[in-house]
């Protein structure tokens, strides 16, 4: 089992956000978690990757059979958990290539492999960039500085294919993308799929799921998974809207 979440309850301050999440993701699977704004999608992502500011009041998260709740964000990343951010952060003055190489070498070091020098890494990253059709000029800039929405998302997927995580969580990767960029990003993800790699695609709309086909679709509402089904669930949601599942608002 890649990821096993049991009865997860979490709050921000006194406000409960997640109210008993149960989720199992097997190796090789592509899951989609759909939900409206404020349903708890981003909180769930952040808690899996270890962002501070949340209190876990009940439940557990196991990754590859071990609890990760006490692990730092960097340890989770080194163990193979990756998040593609909804809003990738701009880091002024830090060269994108240098950043990518630092992250890549942190992983090499963790795996007990020798670090790559600048020239060898350059060769590697140029190959990886082809997978997301990214222009080389983005290597010279500061991290995400002056990148368009689409370029930021490509840069996220570039990091994913470079760091080769086992579990990738793509948080609203489709937001801010035009149709061409969406296809490129989806293509990058699809080519990266493998039987030992799992994915969770977090999204509001069904749009991205046309290009990245999920094995399982979950609907998150008010901090709970209210429905789980196959890819046809996404289509039903698209057609009927979230109100379909939201008894109170029918």
């Amino acid at each position: 089992m890649m990821l096993k979440i049991k009865n997860l309850h979490a709050s921000v301050g006194d406000k409960p956000i997640l109210k008993g999440i149960n989720l199992e993701v097997k190796a090789g699977e592509m899951h989609a978690i759909m939900g409206r704004n404020g349903s708890g999608k981003s909180t769930l992502t952040n808690i899996i990757t270890g962002k501070e500011g949340y209190t876990i009041t009940d439940g557990s998260i196991e990754y590859k059979g071990k609890s990760i709740l006490d692990d730092s964000p960097e340890d989770r990343a080194l163990n193979g958990i990756f998040q593609s951010f909804q809003y990738p952060v701009v880091i002024h003055g830090v060269n994108n290539t240098y950043f990518l190489r630092t992250a890549y070498n942190a992983k090499r070091k963790y795996l007990g492999q020798p670090e790559l020098d600048a020239a060898s890494f350059m060769k590697l990253i140029r190959e990886k960039m082809k997978l997301v059709e990214m222009d080389r000029s983005y290597l010279k800039r500061s991290v995400n500085d002056g990148f368009s929405g689409g370029e930021k998302k490509r840069n996220e997927i570039l990091q994913m294919v470079t760091l080769e995580p086992s579990l990738s969580i793509l948080d609203e990767t489709d937001s801010g993308l035009d149709i061409d960029a969406l296809k490129i990003v989806a293509n990058g993800v699809n080519n990266f799929r493998r039987e030992d790699r799992s994915f969770i695609v977090i999204t509001h709309y069904q749009r991205l799921l046309k290009y990245i086909e999920p094995d399982v679709v979950h609907v998150l509402m008010d901090g709970q998974i209210v429905k789980t089904g196959g890819k046809e669930l996404a289509l039903a949601l698209e057609e009927k809207g979230y109100g379909w599942l939201d008894g109170d608002q029918l």
Binding site: G50, V94, F99, T102, A106
Partner: peptide, 19 residues
């Protein structure tokens, strides 16, 4: 963001300060 890429806290801070 930096830590989520496997970069340790100290190195992440140094990277940001250098930037």
């Amino acid at each position: 963001y930096l830590r989520s890429r496997g970069i340790g806290l100290d190195e992440a801070q140094s990277l940001m300060i250098s930037g």
